[in-house]
Amino acid sequence: MEMKKRISSELSNRNPAEVVELVVENCRSSDGEVEGLTDEYTELEILSMVNVGLSSLSKLPKLPKLRKLEVSDNIISGGLDTLVEKCPDLTSLNLSGNKIKELSSIETLQNLKNLRSLYLYSCEVSTLDDYTEGVFELLPQLTFLDGYDQEDNEVPDSEADNGETAFNRKS
Results as ranks from 00 to 15, higher is better:
124 E>Y: 09
87 C>N: 04
160 A>R: 14
40 E>C: 11
129 D>G: 01
166 A>K: 03
139 L>H: 07
120 L>Q: 08
117 S>W: 03
102 E>V: 10
34 V>F: 03
50 V>G: 01
165 T>A: 09
154 E>G: 07
158 S>F: 12
89 D>L: 12
72 S>N: 11
165 T>D: 11
47 L>K: 06
50 V>C: 12
35 E>P: 01
139 L>E: 04
134 G>H: 07
152 D>M: 14
42 T>P: 01
51 N>Y: 02
115 L>F: 08
50 V>P: 00
55 S>F: 00
74 N>A: 04
115 L>T: 03
141 Q>R: 08
150 Q>F: 08
119 Y>K: 07
72 S>A: 13
108 T>L: 09
64 P>D: 07
77 S>V: 01
54 L>P: 09
67 R>D: 00
164 E>F: 10
38 T>P: 04
33 E>R: 12
125 V>E: 08
48 S>P: 05
91 T>R: 15
103 L>K: 12
79 G>Y: 04
104 S>E: 13
88 P>I: 06
71 V>L: 05
36 G>I: 01
131 Y>Q: 09
110 Q>T: 12
104 S>C: 07
93 L>G: 04
158 S>H: 10
102 E>M: 14
136 F>H: 07
108 T>Q: 06
144 F>M: 02
70 E>C: 05
90 L>D: 06
122 S>I: 01
166 A>S: 15
39 D>L: 00
108 T>F: 00
33 E>W: 01
160 A>V: 06
116 R>L: 12
58 S>R: 14
105 S>H: 13
58 S>P: 00
124 E>D: 14
99 K>E: 14
128 L>R: 13
52 V>K: 02
169 R>D: 09
30 S>L: 13
110 Q>M: 11
45 E>T: 12
82 T>E: 10
118 L>R: 05
86 K>Y: 10
142 L>E: 02
101 K>V: 14
104 S>L: 04
113 K>C: 02
126 S>L: 03
32 G>F: 04
115 L>R: 05
62 K>S: 14
35 E>G: 00
149 D>P: 08
114 N>K: 15
46 I>T: 11
83 L>D: 02
126 S>N: 10
94 N>Y: 00
50 V>A: 12
76 I>G: 07
126 S>H: 04
115 L>A: 08
124 E>N: 11
62 K>I: 14
87 C>S: 15
38 T>M: 05
143 T>P: 00
110 Q>N: 08
128 L>P: 00
137 E>F: 00
61 P>K: 03
169 R>E: 08
90 L>K: 07
139 L>I: 12
62 K>G: 04
136 F>L: 10
160 A>Q: 13
119 Y>R: 11
34 V>W: 03
147 G>N: 06
40 E>A: 15
65 K>N: 13
161 D>I: 09
143 T>F: 00
56 S>A: 11
168 N>T: 13
53 G>R: 03
76 I>L: 09
149 D>M: 10
56 S>H: 07
40 E>D: 15
143 T>C: 02
121 Y>T: 05
120 L>W: 08
37 L>E: 02
128 L>M: 13
133 E>R: 13
166 A>E: 05
99 K>T: 07
167 F>Q: 04
71 V>I: 08
83 L>A: 09
88 P>W: 03
78 G>Q: 07
105 S>L: 00
44 L>A: 06
133 E>D: 13
79 G>A: 08
